[in-house]
């Protein structure tokens, strides 16, 4: 590979910027930074430590996310890195960025709301909604339906 391993260590801001383009494997319109699961970046001598917190403890995407972060950073020339799992403080949907919430809605997934249910149908904005199931296609989502346009949709549940 032509990437010089000896190049100057990138700044943490630079690393953060790179991670902005690592997508969540299950909801590719948001990045791991938008999701709010990257909890810390630090240099331990010449080794970059990335602390990642799981969304749901059994979420199968967690391992994939760690691999994706590692691959993305290696491609940028970071040769020595460690992914650390950090449990505390636990992830909640408050860690989602505003950009992330807007992207979710554009994508057709209603963003989390403290009221416990979606505010509006992501397709037609109607608020005449009903819950179909407390769970959905991934651990972080529930299944709802719009009574106006009759379309079912995913709701990113509030945790």
């Amino acid at each position: 590979m032509s990437t010089p391993a000896s190049s100057a260590m990138p700044t943490l801001d630079q690393v953060r910027d790179w991670l902005e383009s690592v997508p969540d494997p299950e909801i590719p319109v948001i990045s791991v930074m938008d999701l709010g699961i990257v909890r810390g970046l630090r240099w331990d001598d010449d080794l970059l430590e990335v602390s990642v917190t799981p969304t749901y403890s059994g979420c199968p995407a967690t391992r994939v996310i760690a691999q994706d972060i590692e691959a993305a950073l290696r491609e940028k020339g970071v040769s020595k890195l460690r992914i650390r799992t950090q449990l505390s403080p636990p992830w909640t949907t408050d860690w989602l960025s505003d950009k992330g919430r807007a992207r979710l809605e554009e994508y057709g997934i209603a963003p989390p709301s403290p009221s416990g249910g979606p505010k509006a149908c992501p397709r037609c904005q109607s608020d005449d909604l009903e819950r179909i199931s407390q769970f959905g296609s991934t651990p972080c989502k529930a299944h709802w339906r719009c009574r106006t346009c009759l379309e079912p949709f995913d709701y990113f549940k509030c945790l």
Partner: peptide, 18 residues
């Protein structure tokens, strides 16, 4: 829907087991 709910609950519990 119940199938998915049960599987997701199982997944949470297995994650906690780890």
């Amino acid at each position: 829907e119940e199938d998915i709910a049960i599987a997701n609950t199982a997944l949470d519990l297995i994650g906690q087991t780890q």
